[in-house]
Design a protein around this nucleic acid. Structure first.
Lengths: 167, 167
DNA sequence: GTCAGTTGCTTCGAATTCGAAGCACACGCC
DNA sequence: GGCGTGTGCTTCGAATTCGAAGCAACTGAC
């Protein structure tokens, strides 16, 4: 049996399962609150947050999609919903006619400000209340490394397509 | 500002975001491989894994749904698919006429055995290759605590319903 | 220039997901 | 027993999700 496919030991399995379980439970709790508090889905919230944190509050569609780890077509759909509600705007990029620049509006920022306290409350209750002091830095450090490692792989937008050479 | 809604500090935010980002990226990578390797979705894989690990390879629908953190109706749908493919069986519980007992079949166990090596390879590459020795126990320990904390909250199946008192 | 291949986004169709509503059984309390 | 409430699962309808295919603009090689 190659070391690549050797079964994970008990510690590894436990860590892997705990990670997936925790994230799923947290996501559901957060989802529910966002829905009740500001009629936002988790993805919509993440989109607004990413935009809020970006310089000028604007990003290209593809970069946004890679950022929130979402399919491009899915992002088009969500962006459409958010635009209808006046929380973001879409406009063509000046330098590349194909690109679309997404930007948060004032209403978008207001909505974030409105739902953020409740969001934080949920995260605190679910996640941080279970952590000992010091665990936070630890968890953040380790997971940060993992994220950086994962992000070195090419993002979803860089998947090859167009195999039209065989008609 | 109450301490409940005080903004999360930088360490906390970093840890929270890293957690969600890592789990999403990992889930997508795993999903893709399971689909290619055994035509299974992530949920279907988890269902089969839970059943494989359960005594006698059987569980009640509700317990299974709570275990994999999934809606009941969603589980009914997925169970239907898995049953069609002969990977599980559904049968009424002997002691409670309402309950349905789900059980893995031999084919189900075979399929798990077939996709597990590839699954492990992905998890190892994405997650464990980025961890220093010792980080695994650490991560598992902390996340295990968090999971136990989250699991003390009532599961999805225990949500109140039936508000028929106001016709 | 121009032509083939690439990249950015949207449209499209199919599959999945969820909560609410529905159905049937179980369990109490009288 | 009989009735009201609770529980276990499925059905139903609506919303979301994804990849493939499509369209338009860009890029590089020649």
């Amino acid at each position: 049996m190659s070391p690549e496919t050797a079964p994970l030991d008990a510690e590894q399995l436990a860590a892997y399962f705990a990670l997936m379980e925790v994230s799923t439970l947290l996501q559901h709790a957060v989802d529910e609150h966002l829905r009740a508090d500001g009629d936002l889905s988790n993805v919509q919230f993440q989109i607004l947050m990413r935009l809020s944190g970006a310089p000028e509050g604007r990003l290209r569609m593809t970069d946004l999609a890679d950022g929130v780890v979402y399919s491009r077509s899915g992002l088009t759909y969500q962006a459409g919903l958010l635009e209808q509600r006046g929380l973001i705007t879409r406009s063509p990029a000046p330098d590349d006619e194909r690109s679309v620049i997404v930007a948060v509006t004032g209403a978008g920022r207001d909505l974030i400000a409105q739902v953020l306290p409740g969001h934080i409350r949920v995260v605190r209750r679910m996640l941080f209340n279970a952590l000992q002091p010091g665990d936070v830095e630890l968890l953040g450090g380790v997971l940060g490394q993992v994220r950086d490692h994962m992000r070195t792989a090419p993002p979803r937008s860089a998947r090859p397509r167009t195999r039209r050479t065989k008609p």
